[in-house]
Design a protein around this nucleic acid. Structure first.
Lengths: 340, 340
DNA sequence: GTGAAAGCGCTAACAT
DNA sequence: ATGTTAGCGCTTTCAC
């Protein structure tokens, strides 16, 4: 940068001189330490206001080793993460919790190749006290990077790593994908459905998708493979997968779709084929994104995750991480609407 | 925060000792100063890598007064801004330009009341060199806040303020809303349309909406008021406004809709009334968001803004602001598709 | 081309 | 309750 950005601001020394006390006393006033005479506090505050003094964070940070800022790093190959209402809520939870601790959340993005080095420098350079990390690159560079930086970090969503050991190294917060899937499928069973299919996420790439499929299999260990169709967590993927399932098994009478977005697509495929929901085919989704689940026709019975709470937990783990419980899995519950 | 976050990291002193040179030399290597012997450079680099040394930004910042970080502050009352593909692209442009200058973009959100004080502290505390600001609160608190902090700032979108003078105080980058609207309406005129209506944004609240309406009036100064219907930049608003226009003026044969999202809604209203587009009614939108404009039926003729370029410009203004041109208006162009 | 020394603005013992 | 002192880790003259 060409310009000198910050003008000549007053320092703590200026305040001290103006108020006729020492730097230490001013520092005490600023940091709200008790042992200062009330009238001195008043006097110093006055001068601070007059001078428009603002403490230099760099100087403070140099000695305290603290910034009161926490980075939220999003490893997004494209705009996906950013446009995801799920992420929006997660971020809100994180910010809320950090605010409770007086910390500022700063969001960093990682999409171009050279972003990596810069973000690593930023994270390692002491700009922040800790980091919350979201990665859409399973086994990706983010995990590797954070391993070398020694700042406290927690992952949003269980990191799916090739190296099994490394998983342990990082704390994470995730929803109970497997348990939630079980709830969903058990519900369909309890409804008396006999041929329960599933539209899965990319279970070879995403941990959540693998777990949701595992939950389905937990309940239906004998379900034939042709009742499962893999999609990619997109709406169109849901439509295509549902169509494929109907082709293969016209007799199916229920489907567990591993995300609300895909379920929305699946409903379209069902309508296109003239199947009534839930009369002919019962549908259960996953995520409980209000924008989707309440807006579909019929409204979606789906597995709810308290995403805001997950965000809050991530932030909390940064502050007091229980020694023996580095990661947390948040429970889910089934929300009954009209689709099943 | 309870824990000491940063462990004992190597300092420049450690690197110096290990490599048998002075701190100064190490500093020179780090900062890529030319006057260091190549073999020394090599040697020092080696040690830095071994030790995993990362410069302490606080210390550096204390002397250089620079952070190489720029804040992007989004004043979003709810999730709106965050979920906006427009904003996504803007942010990309900003990040790209900042990266060119070796600066890191950090995104801050402002939605809860107490966020304000914390963000102000963050911005004023020297964590960043400058700030790019987006506000959905016209005349809002963000403008006021930034006025007191003396860091360079540029606004995304012309700030709409009650106090006319304050507008001058802040640089901004905006699209040529008025000019773009003129292009759109002139195109409809050139098509031979006689009764050209317009669906406007909330022109009493948003500068862009007011300008787009002004552009319409520039071309059609004599258009009767009943040919203009105000909406709120939402899709549903576009549908309702279009319906209202058709009720009032069944003879309209063209409409300039002040955003693609509203135009999408308008197309639905037209279809519902059995009007063919463009045969019966020609439609022109504004923004050229590919997700929308290319996906509608028929695809939308619309006013294109180079949003990425706008983002890049904002960042650039931070670095070298021309003394006499504090703000920039980016030209638009009409993209012809099938709707007009 | 490289080193020595000063100092950025602040906090944190340690005195008093 | 307040002042003195010593750094925090880095860049930057200024010598050599």
């Amino acid at each position: 940068m060409t310009r000198r950005f910050h003008g000549q601001r007053p320092t703590i020394e200026d305040v001290a001189r103006q108020s006729g006390v020492s730097r230490s006393t001013v520092s005490r006033v600023i940091n709200g330490e008790p042992k200062v005479r009330a009238e001195v506090v008043e006097q110093v505050r006055q001068v601070i206001a007059e001078l428009g003094y603002v403490p230099n964070q760099a100087a403070r940070q140099l000695v305290t080793h603290r910034t009161n800022a926490v980075a939220v790093v999003a490893d997004q190959p494209d705009g996906r993460l950013f446009l995801d209402p799920y992420f929006d809520r997660l971020l809100r939870g994180i910010r809320r919790e950090l605010a409770l601790h007086g910390a500022q959340a700063v969001l960093l993005f990682l999409d171009e190749p050279d972003d990596h080095a810069r973000v690593a420098d930023y994270l390692g350079g002491g700009h922040v006290d800790a980091a919350v990390l979201f990665s859409l690159h399973p086994g990706g560079r983010l995990h590797e990077m954070i391993g070398r930086l020694d700042i406290p970090a927690v992952f949003g969503g269980r990191p799916l790593l090739l190296d099994g050991d490394t998983v342990r190294a990082h704390a994470y917060v995730d929803g109970d994908n497997r348990g939630g899937a079980r709830q969903a499928v058990r519900h369909l069973v309890s409804l008396g459905r006999r041929h329960i299919a599933t539209v899965t996420g990319p279970h070879d790439q995403e941990h959540s998708a693998a777990e949701r499929l595992a939950g389905y299999r937990d309940v239906l260990p004998d379900a034939p493979p042709e009742l499962a169709e893999r999609a990619d967590y997109t709406r169109q993927g849901g439509t295509d997968a549902m169509a494929a399932l109907l082709d293969r098994r016209p007799d199916l009478d229920a489907v567990f779709v591993a995300s609300d977005l895909m379920a929305q697509g699946a409903l379209e495929a069902l309508r296109a084929r003239g199947r009534r929901v839930p009369e002919d085919v019962a549908v259960v989704g996953f995520d409980d994104l209000a924008e989707i689940a309440e807006a579909t026709d019929p409204p979606l019975t789906t597995v709810h995750q308290d995403v805001g709470e997950m965000g809050r937990l991530m932030a909390r783990l940064l502050f007091d991480r229980p020694a023996d419980l580095p990661s947390v899995v948040v429970p889910t519950r089934l929300v009954l609407r009209a689709s099943a």
